[in-house]
């Protein structure tokens, strides 16, 4: 037997969660764009898309967030004010497993020796009701980085579509059980056929990691990254990319220190005020992104910094596919390159 949520009851779930005080967000279509946004009815949900354009990261690490305020009084005296994040309790309904899996991965860095209160206070306020993927596309690769289209990792409640179009419901942990208790119209039903996408394994992760260990210096990076234009598209749509900038903005008497998304792909990311740039060329910046995700982060914090959602692959304006690059590495294509390949005078 399993617990079943009839599809028609999704509307009741939205209403119940909203009346329990939650902001409910899910995939919403606006023209050509499907993003996670607030909904007031299940009818707002665009559940037919493979994946939203943006990730759920913005609910935990907003693209801009105040971390401190500085008020200067008439005499010029400054008071430093803590920016207290009081995040709204939020349920993400129709989250994807590759988004949900990103949060426990990023928890590691935000708890690394010191605790980032902003991340964890938002984290605490967010509940994930994930819908297992019934479909995938050629950019999906969760199964290549240890995930699965029906992985419960990171979720509080996992819904899996049945052949009849209803949802089999699974609560995960105390938070999940607590949340599921608010779902109206659940019933027991015999286990039914589940609709779960078959996401093929597209590369051998350990082979890719081995290739990265050997190929810090390789013409592969120049060949690969020559077309990269150095925008922040891939990192900003990524659910695991978490690098940030801290900037002071606002009027002189009420300035704010803000934490903003930042991208290792941009040339200013590492530029010293002296003019020295440790990563002067785009190939260095692209290498950093791949190395950080597949070598550095796992070796320091134990997890690959990628859930295989494929957003970076779809969003890249120059079709520089991370999936292709990591597949190439795993297939040993970087090892085989002659050192003169792709050589350009600096």
């Amino acid at each position: 037997m399993s617990r079943l949520l009839p599809r028609a009851n999704l509307e009741g779930v939205v209403a119940a969660l909203r009346s329990a005080g939650y902001r409910v967000v899910g995939p919403v279509r606006r023209g050509s764009l499907v993003t996670y946004d607030e909904i007031s009815s299940a009818a707002d949900l665009a559940l037919d898309v493979i994946i939203t354009r943006d990730s759920i990261k913005k609910f935990v690490l907003p693209r801009t967030e105040v971390v401190a305020r500085f008020n200067r009084d008439a005499a010029g005296k400054v008071s430093v004010l803590d920016a207290t994040a009081a995040p709204q309790p939020t349920v993400i309904l129709g989250c994807r497993p590759c988004d949900a899996a990103a949060l426990p991965i990023d928890d590691l860095v935000f708890a690394w020796d010191s605790t980032d209160r902003f991340w964890f206070s938002r984290r605490e306020a967010v509940r994930l009701v994930t819908i297992a993927c019934a479909n995938c596309d050629e950019s999906c690769f969760c199964t290549s980085v240890g995930g699965a289209p029906d992985s419960p990792e990171g979720s509080d409640v996992l819904l899996t579509e049945t052949a009849a179009g209803d949802y089999e419901v699974q609560a995960l942990g105390e938070r999940g059980a607590e949340l599921l208790a608010k779902f109206p119209g659940l019933r027991d039903a015999p286990a039914a056929d589940r609709r779960v996408a078959a996401v093929p394994q597209r590369f051998d992760l350990s082979a890719a990691v081995t290739a990265l260990e050997k190929n810090f210096e390789s013409p592969f990076w120049r060949q690969t990254a020559l077309r990269c234009v150095g925008c922040g598209c891939c990192t900003f749509v990524c659910p695991t990319c978490h690098c940030f900038d801290l900037v002071d903005e606002g009027p002189a008497y009420h300035s704010e220190r803000r934490r903003n998304w930042d991208a290792c792909q941009m040339k200013n990311f590492t530029l010293h005020a002296s003019g020295h740039n440790p990563r002067p060329w785009q190939e260095h910046r692209y290498r950093q992104r791949i190395m950080h995700k597949f070598l550095y982060y796992p070796s320091r914090l134990g997890r690959t910094l990628c859930t295989g959602c494929g957003r970076c692959v779809r969003a890249c304006p120059v079709n520089l596919s991370l999936l292709q690059v990591v597949s190439d590495l795993a297939a040993g294509r970087a090892n085989a390159l002659p050192t003169s390949a792709g050589e350009v005078k600096k």
Binding site: V229, C231, F236, W261
Partner: peptide
């Protein structure tokens, strides 16, 4: 409001 300041517009 949708802009995420990725500067893809500028960089392409």
């Amino acid at each position: 409001d949708k802009c995420i300041k990725c500067y893809a517009c500028r960089n392409v």
